[in-house]
């Protein structure tokens, strides 16, 4: 079981790294939102799943409740992260920032 936990942890770290590199490299803030919001969501799903699995090593009622709470956090992140992204996009649209198209300079 330890191998499964380590595998999921490393996969989550790869997704988090991709998110951080993407935030630095993409040209404008609409395209930066793609790695920021979603690779982070996927990474936290994988890492939290691995941690809740590791937490079930000693199977007691308290440990099961704690793992359930971790899964609840993941569900909350999956609901709230698109909403936060949509809020940021909406703010940019109302301020009148146009999206970056091919051939513009980096912002």
């Amino acid at each position: 079981m330890d191998f499964v936990v380590i595998f999921f942890l490393v996969c989550g770290l790869v997704f988090f790294t991709g998110g951080a590199v993407g935030i630095l490299r993409f040209p404008d803030f609409y395209s930066r939102l793609h790695p920021a919001g979603k690779l982070d969501t996927m990474g936290s799903l994988l890492m939290m799943g691995a941690l809740s699995l590791y937490n079930l090593h000693h199977f007691t009622l308290g440990n099961m409740l704690t793992s359930l709470k971790i899964i609840l956090i993941v569900a909350f992140v999956f609901l709230s992260s698109p909403t936060a992204i949509h809020g940021i996009v909406d703010a940019g649209m109302r301020a009148g920032l146009g999206p970056w198209t091919k051939g513009d300079r980096r912002r």
Binding site: Y30, L33, H34, K38, L39, F78, S81, I85, V89
Partner: peptide, 8 residues
């Protein structure tokens, strides 16, 4: 929004 590459 959750499928990457597209944002509503």
């Amino acid at each position: 929004t959750l499928t990457p590459g597209t944002i509503t």
